[in-house]
């Protein structure tokens, strides 16, 4: 009889000590945080530099030689999950395709970045600039002129028409990068 009481008492003491320790640790942890100071970044005063690949405001970039990159292939418009890109394709006298008009409705864009992934020419790109909210929802519809910029964005070197093998004023058959001169098939005859 006696040992059982002793063991029961000791067990109770153990539980009590555990409770006291748990309480002490809890209060100690919060107190430590009180003197650690806040981690908050106060937004309008301090703007954290965002990583280059963070996704917000969309731009239409240009080639390294300054011409517009977009070839109006409709891929971005097709992949966009909320259907907020629309355009009309056209072809210039130089042989380059371009978008006659190009429109993104930022009221609907969810900044998923799929358009950027789909784009074969690196034309459409998302930028870290996110403070583009407006009072008037119609002002959220951006036209081509609002989207175009005169730099290459994240992809500094790519020039679609230099590789594509499409004949334009600037490059004929066999004049593109890594492209061989066309072969006269008849010379291949045995």
């Amino acid at each position: 009889m006696q040992p059982i009481i002793v063991i029961g008492f000791l067990n109770n003491m153990k539980v009590l000590i555990e409770i006291a320790y748990a309480l002490y640790m809890g209060f100690y942890t919060t107190l430590k945080n009180l003197f650690r100071g806040p981690f908050t970044e106060e937004y309008p005063e301090y703007k954290r530099p965002l990583p280059a690949r963070s996704r917000a405001q969309i731009i239409l970039t240009s080639d390294p030689d300054g011409q517009e990159r977009c070839v109006a292939c409709y891929l971005c418009s097709a992949v966009c999950p909320v259907d907020c890109i629309s355009m009309q394709a056209a072809e210039a006298d130089s042989g380059r395709r371009y978008a006659k008009w190009f429109r993104i409705n930022f009221g609907r864009c969810i900044f998923c970045g799929l358009c950027e992934e789909a784009c074969p020419t690196s034309a459409i790109q998302l930028t870290p600039f996110f403070e583009n909210s407006k009072r008037d929802i119609l002002k959220m519809v951006y036209e081509k002129a609002d989207l175009q910029v005169d730099h290459c964005g994240k992809d500094k070197n790519y020039n679609f028409y230099a590789y594509a093998g499409i004949v334009t004023k600037s490059a004929g058959k066999g004049e593109h990068v890594k492209e061989e001169k066309p072969v006269d098939v008849r010379t291949n005859m045995p």
Partner: peptide
């Protein structure tokens, strides 16, 4: 304010 500090925030300011 204090709750903010306890949670490493600033609280209303």
């Amino acid at each position: 304010k204090l709750l903010g500090r306890f949670q490493a925030r600033i609280g209303p300011n």
